[in-house]
Each structure stands twice: as structure tokens, then as C-alpha cells.
Design a protein around this nucleic acid. Sequence first.
DNA 1: ACCTAAACGAGACGGTACGTCGCGTCTTCGC
DNA 2: GCGAAGACGCGACGTACCGTCTCGTTTAGGT
Lengths: 191, 191, 191, 191
Amino acid sequence: MSPNLDRRNERSRQAIIEAAMALCREQGLARTTVEEIAKRAGVGKQTIYRWWPSKTAVVEEGINELAGTATDFPDTGDLLADLRTQMAGVASILSSPLFAPYLSLIGAAQDDPELAKSFLDGLVKPRVNAARERLRAAQDQGQLRADADLDDVVELLYGPIYYRALLHTRPPSPAQVDELLRIAFAGLAPR
Amino acid sequence: MSPNLDRRNERSRQAIIEAAMALCREQGLARTTVEEIAKRAGVGKQTIYRWWPSKTAVVEEGINELAGTATDFPDTGDLLADLRTQMAGVASILSSPLFAPYLSLIGAAQDDPELAKSFLDGLVKPRVNAARERLRAAQDQGQLRADADLDDVVELLYGPIYYRALLHTRPPSPAQVDELLRIAFAGLAPR
Amino acid sequence: MSPNLDRRNERSRQAIIEAAMALCREQGLARTTVEEIAKRAGVGKQTIYRWWPSKTAVVEEGINELAGTATDFPDTGDLLADLRTQMAGVASILSSPLFAPYLSLIGAAQDDPELAKSFLDGLVKPRVNAARERLRAAQDQGQLRADADLDDVVELLYGPIYYRALLHTRPPSPAQVDELLRIAFAGLAPR
Amino acid sequence: MSPNLDRRNERSRQAIIEAAMALCREQGLARTTVEEIAKRAGVGKQTIYRWWPSKTAVVEEGINELAGTATDFPDTGDLLADLRTQMAGVASILSSPLFAPYLSLIGAAQDDPELAKSFLDGLVKPRVNAARERLRAAQDQGQLRADADLDDVVELLYGPIYYRALLHTRPPSPAQVDELLRIAFAGLAPR
DNA sequence: ACCTAAACGAGACGGTACGTCGCGTCTTCGC
DNA sequence: GCGAAGACGCGACGTACCGTCTCGTTTAGGT
């Protein structure tokens, strides 16, 4: 019934993912068709449908491979420095053409609850969890207000970065991260 | 060349927008077809294409009419109270099924630069400008740190709300707004 | 209910017919649209639909005016000479680009029984009747076999001319008429 | 580039031709749409367009298959008898509802030079050639005037049959064929 | 090293929707 | 009140892709 993983052609698998990512970068996910991917990858359409339920699943896998450990959290003991490092990485990713398919994926998820779920579980949650743990450690060390809800803090820090990327106001940047951390840690109220 | 606005049938215009919005709420924008919209609106496809370049443009107009003055900024003199009021309104919109097409639109814009531009110019910028003006007034009155970049503040406040909605972690809510304002105005650094 | 003939604009009527005929000559009747006719004639579509039920009716009227008395039958007393004259005229008409819409009309009539009827009654029958009368006069004068059915004779003489035109084997010509009359009057049987 | 004939689905091919012929008999070629043909044949539109350039091409193939050997020329040695047999067959075809699409095709060819050419080459010429050969054999045997141009003879004999069918004066019939041959072989001149 | 069953490339298939064209009707002005 | 102009509801066009379904053709594992 379901295909035999042992006999899978790894070369085809990679060619498909690379073709999908490349086309997605060139034209966006919406304008990318399965037929184009197959042709570009030198592969039959059936080989795509055999292993993935849809083109978005291919791109999801591509993003996962591409992200790799690039968004891992450092722990130098200095929370602010670590946040600056990691958030700058995220800002860089969200403004990089290489990762354009990532934004397309978030876009597609707005009308596709299944994609939204697998996107959330596979890409977002693990990274949010890692961030929360880093924040908890810092909180234990007194580098963060004790009464701050850590999920809210994560949203406060990363929301503005995604905001810029998804609303296309201006590209996220290290400068934004600096200003963000400055305001967040000092507060908006006048002294 | 371009059609004559004076001869336009207002009844058809409204029926098209309402049909598009309804279908978009039921199935999402991606699964909504122009043919369905035309059929539901009791209208020929050509009448849609005559006045809008695409289904997304129809939905954009629909959102614009629906939003109306719902996101206007109050000015009671108390910045925090005004922010709470207005941001709660935004959170409510972003978690309301009525406004689901708004999220679809942001999603579609990820792969459609033209849509991204008109969306930004028509929907985002006017509201961001209004927010900036309200913040500037508050800043002049000493209710806000004098060295805060107002655009960054707008991102800091609204980014987390959009983050929840677009990444589907959890729905934006008034409670989120409260916590957000608490952290933002007090700062994350321990006392 | 039905429009008032007295107020009809003769200039428009002629412009419509001429536009229809011209377009029909350039592209054939099938590719000619009512909208093109209206535009070329500098006329609103409604003005066409007010006075004719369809574009074929316009062309029919155009053909009728164009044919005029060109196919009238001479009567010099010499049947063979008169036939030669008149049939050569028919052959000329059926091979002339000016009359191309006439063939288009016959073509359209194959799938349109109403057109077939009005075409038959308005264009064919009167001319067949005239031919039959000329033949009858000749028969009375002994220039034609007494036992020949005159309708069959008409078909025998004109069928081959239409055959060339409608099957596009080769254009009808005076030479064909000559040969036709030679065979018809002498018979095919060897002497 | 062009589709692979080996992979062609013969069942679909036949269903398409039969659907096209049936619809053409019911409504005429002009009112028959490709969509109707596809639906009736249980086939996607693309499958029609993949193998034929237009609906007329489908009907042409249908007519070719239907005609088959029905119009083949007998050769009993008696020219008049053979002509009577074959021409009666043609008359029967041209007055049969089964072959109504044949007349529609001739009609459509009046406004479509490409169709006219393929119709002429594929349907008319082969049969005219066969007729000419039969006539030549008879001419050699002294059953036909030696100075008769055989193409003119073919036109003389078949023109009147097509004339009746295409101008809708009255249906072609065996009686017409008889009278036709009588006049043609005896001549119109009084004895 | 061979056999055989699978995965593979290719692409035809039944469908759905696309964006466009033209139909015949209806509506609004201007003459 | 006819006519120019053209928007309207509608239906069909020919095309693009969808996801499924054969086709031979590799190709890889088990014997």
C-alpha cells in the first residue's frame, strides 16, 4: 500500500526538493506548479505524489533541511547577548531571498489548516520551546523579571520581526533587534 | 478603454463583494474561485473582471469596507487606556471569523508583490500613521520615553498580535494586550 | 412594440449592411461578429438588433441588394445564347470575392433551418421560377425536348456551377458553362 | 511536443467521434459545442484538443469512418447501371439524417479555408478520382462520348444532387438520378 | 550473477477553473 | 423616440494544472 522507503531514490528526493525551493524563490509558492517541479527535477509527477501529499509538504521539508541548526539558541550565560545573536539570525533569515519559501509557506497556511498545524508542530513549536527554555534559565538567574510570562515574552520579541516580514513594511534587521531589545528591557514608560 | 464608472451597477458591486467575503470565510481565499463568486452574486464573471483585476482585489475592497472606522484611534489623553482600547479592537478583529479573509489576504500577499503593495498602502500604512500620530502626541505630553522610535514602538505593540494570528499559535486576545502593555511599559529587566 | 419604420435612419441601415458585407468578405461570416459590424458601421448594437433578428439576416439583405437584376434572364429568342449569357453571369458571381458572403450564407443555412427557408424563398425560388419560365417558352418553341422536366433541367444546368463553388474544387467559369451546355444539349452517349 | 499516438486511448477516441456525430445530428454543427461533446463522451476537453484542432476535424473524421466504402464504385461493365447504383447511394447519403453532419461540414467549410482544403483532399478528391477512373474505363469501351471532359462529366452528374441537398430545394432521390442520367445521356436538344 | 518486484520517467486521462470573447438584453444619455 | 455607447448575465472558448492512471525501463535486494 504505502511505498517502500528502502527502495526510495535519494537522488530524486533531493532533486525534487531543490527544484521546488528554487521555483518557489523565483516565482513564489502560489505560482509554482507540481508539473514544473517535476520537469525541473527531471522526475515524473507520480514520484512527487508518491512521497508527499502536496507541493507545500515538499517545501516544508525543504525549509526544515535548510533551517537546520541555524536558529539554535546559544547559551553564553549573558541573556541579552544570546538573544541579540539568535534574533539577528532570525531577522537575517526572514529577510533573505534564500528563505523566501518560508514566508510563502506561512502565507499558504492561512487557508490550509492542515498545513498550519504541521507547520506549527514541525517548525515553530520546537524553536519556541528552545527559546522558552533559554529564557527560563535566564529568569532563574535573575536576568529577567520573575513575573514575566515566557510565552508572552517570546511573542514580544519575535512578533515584531515577523510583523515586518509578513506585512512587508521593511525588512527585519539586526538594527531592529537592537532597538527591540533596548525598548523591551528598559520599558516604554518615561524615567 | 477602461469602463465607465458612471454606468456601474452598484447592486452588482455589493453582491460581488459580499459573495467573495462569505465564500472566503467558509473556505478560505485559496479555495474560493471567481466562478463561485459570480454564481453566488448572481453576476457574470466578466462583471468581476471588468472592475477588479483579481479575486484578491475584491476581498481587499471588502476588508476595507468592513474595517471602516473600527480601528480608529481614540484620544482620551490617557495613552495607555487608548492603546488598550484600540489594540483590543485589533486583537478582536484578528481572531474573529468575520475578518478571516484579512488573514487570507496577508497570506496571498506573500506570493504576490502587487497585492503586498496595495495591501500595505491601502490597509496598513494609514493605520500605522494614525498610531504613530497618537504616539507622538503622547510623547509630547511626556507619557512615552522621548528617545523611543515610534515606528519601532508600533511594531513592538502590534507585532505580537499579528504573530499569534498568522502563526496560529493561539488567538490574539484582550488579555494578551494587557500583558503586552504591562511588559512594554515596565520593561523586561528585573527591578 | 415593433419599431417605427418611418423614423428609421437610412444612413445607419446602409452603413450596417456595408460593414457586414465588408467584414464577411474579409473574414467570412462565421468569424464576423455583431459587435464588429456595429463598430465598423459607427452604430450601436441595439440598432442592429432593432431591425434584424441576426447577422445572417443583415447579410441576406445585403446579398439581395447586391444581386439586384444581375441575374435576370434575357430573352433574345435563342435559348442557348440566353442560357450562356445568364449562366456565365451566375458563374461569375459565384467565383467573385464580392459575392463571397453569398456562399457563407449557404454555408450557414446548413445548420439553420430558418435561414435555409428565407434564403430559399427570398433568393433561390424567384430566380428558379424565372429560369423555368424562360425554359418553358423555349420548350413551347421546340428548342428543348418536350419531355424534359424543367426543374430537373434547372438543377442539371446550375448544380454543376454551385458544385464547384461550394466544394471548392475549382472556380466556376464561362468555359465551364460552355462545356456544360455542349454536353447537356448533345448528350453523353456516343454518336 | 506532439502527443504520443501509442498511448492514445482508443475508447475515448471513439466516444468523442460518436458524441460529436450524435450532437451534430441533433442540433447541427454550429450549435454543437466542444464542451457538450466532451461531456457526452465522458471525456475531458483537453483530450479532444490534444488529438484534433477543432470540432470540425472531429466530425470530418467521423464522416470519413461513416462513409467507409459506401460510396465505392462498382464496375459491372455497364456504365449506366453502375452510375445509377453509385449515384443513388450518394443521393441516399445526402438525404439521410445519419449523414446530416456531412452537409454541416460543407457549410462550415465556406468560412474556413483550412477545413475546405482538408475536406477536399480527404473526402472529395479520392471519390472524384474513383469516379473519373470508372468513366475513363467506360470511355475506352465506347460507352461514353470520346470528347467529353471527364471532370466536367463528374460535375454534371453529381452537381445536381449536391444542389438539391445544399440549397434545400428538395431531397436528392433515386428518381432524380434516373432523370438525370436520362437527360445527360440523351441530351436536351429535341430529336 | 540473476530474478523479480518496486520505484521510476514519461505523459495521457477525466476534471475544474482560468481569463477572454461574443451573445442578445437592458439602461443611460444626447439629438 | 431613435440612436450611440456600453454595462450586464450568460455560455463557450481554448489553456493550464490538478491528482490519478497506465506504460515501458531502470534498479536494487534477496536467493
